[in-house]
Design a protein around this nucleic acid. Structure first.
Lengths: 270, 270
DNA sequence: CGTAAGATTGACAAGCGTCAAATACAGTGG
DNA sequence: CCACTGTATTTGACGCTTGTCAATCTTACG
């Protein structure tokens, strides 16, 4: 089985992934422990994938979606011209492949950018969720809407700005996303993306990504070593990127109350 | 006021908009009449807006979303450089402004591209919907996921293909979208978009949109007159666009049963 | 009939893609 | 530990697509 043998010894925390974490949706409303418990029950057994291993291929029949316990995963789709569009990179603690539940054949390929630990979530879990946990369903709905905003913002970046701007936006965005679940991440983080990966995310070519990164580096805006990226001149990056700040709603009052908790004072929030 | 006077006389059907139609989500699962009835009840009073009138401005506090009874509406967001990204054009029968329910300040501006009839839907309606109509909630969830796929496909188009390709994709896409609710729409339809509107959708400039349209026209692929667009060489357009075909799921079995209908034969669909 | 918005055209510049080759790097087996 | 091999990065030369600026023409509308 995965994880057996001597390698386990040196790994202390962060090794056995929790069955389900709600960090990525928790910002809309504090997820009830009972809700997490139920989700954990529905989530399948975690398993490990190698770097560059395909978790689900575009075109396969959709029978569920995925939860990423550890590592980075890209969601991409192939283009007729042989190109590849990376729709999103998923970080630990996020759901993956959810858009494809709306279609018969998966719209995106999920491929591991690092060694990763994932679980499959069967669609039947969604049915129970919408029936028994309307509040959590509402939070997932909000999450999907937020993803639409994020995609629209990225499309604006790709459509209306140059290569430097797009790269700056990407670097800042990845920093912020990691911070969401790991506050220790600072302006220096490990970036497991290939330059070709970045190109496929931003609608550029690997060659031009290289040139642009190099220019940023020589100007002292960023630095690289091994696979680590250091953001040096944050202001310069911010000026280049100019991504709008989106403030997520926090426990909007229309959300149904948690299914597991009886509302104690009906008008307390008003 | 608008609509009063002699002009009303010649309008027969299609004049008084139905309070709510489910055409745009009906493809995922037949929406129950009772569900439509409840939604209709929650939807606000329809009102008319002029062309270029702003229905909701980016940055305003979000207190609901909208339903478009008639006309075309663009969802756009401003860019720092003075530019504008049109995220989506909404056709009659669609919900609008839903992504912004996830954020405090609206992420997009809704502006009428034609005279239009819209209704506001208060957020409280969503609460009742998720609590009492889990099946409809699931369908809305599917719709949001489908929109994510559509956005990703558009981003691939904008990021990885040239101006001709993007325009071809836009023209075909708009035809297909209109057909969804109006089967009489053929390869010739009224296109109320300005060339600048198209540029803002596709990440181009109005000048270059003009040049490209003109090239397509002189090659006999399309034709224009007044504000009508005729798609002549469909194959050529298809080859240029190469948008992937997405097949929406149809009444997936995980969806909860309609709240208003008791399931008669539990295993009938299996 | 007048005026503003939209469409059209030309000349020129810049950004990015393409092709091709060289170099650095990481993983693998001996 | 080292050679080997495929993968990723780097660099150069060149051309095409698209943006920019500015002027003219057309159409819709009051």
């Amino acid at each position: 089985m995965a994880g057996s043998g001597a390698a386990v010894q040196q790994i202390e925390r962060d090794d056995v992934p929790p069955s389900f974490t709600a960090d990525h949706i928790d910002l809309f409303a504090a997820i009830d422990p009972a809700e997490i418990a139920m989700m954990s029950e529905l989530v399948g057994q975690p398993y490990t994938v190698r770097r560059r291993q395909i978790i689900r291929r575009e075109g396969e029949l959709v029978d569920g979606f995925f939860f990423l316990h550890r590592g980075w995963v890209a969601s991409s789709s192939l283009l007729d011209d042989g190109g590849r569009q990376i729709t999103k990179v998923h970080l630990a603690g996020e759901m993956m492949g959810t858009p494809s539940i709306a279609v018969v054949k998966a719209a995106d390929t999920l491929i591991a950018l690092t060694p990763a630990v994932v679980s499959r979530i069967p669609l039947s879990a969604l049915g129970r969720l919408f029936r028994d946990m309307p509040r959590l369903a509402g939070v997932l709905f909000l999450h999907a809407q937020m993803e639409r905003i994020a995609l629209a913002d990225r499309m604006a970046s790709v459509g209306h700005s140059g290569a430097e701007s797009r790269l700056a936006a990407l670097f800042l965005h990845l920093r912020d996303r990691q911070r969401l679940t790991d506050p220790t991440v600072g302006n220096e983080y490990r970036l497991p993306l290939t330059q070709e990966d970045m190109a496929d995310m931003l609608g550029l070519t690997a060659v031009h990504v290289n040139r642009t990164i190099r220019a940023l580096e020589q100007r002292g805006v960023i630095a690289r070593k091994n696979r680590w990226l250091q953001l040096i001149d944050i202001d310069a990056l911010g000026n280049l990127a100019r991504m709008p700040q989106r403030e997520p709603v926090r426990t909007p009052d229309w959300l149904p109350p948690p299914a597991t908790t009886r509302p104690m004072t009906p008008a307390a929030a008003a």
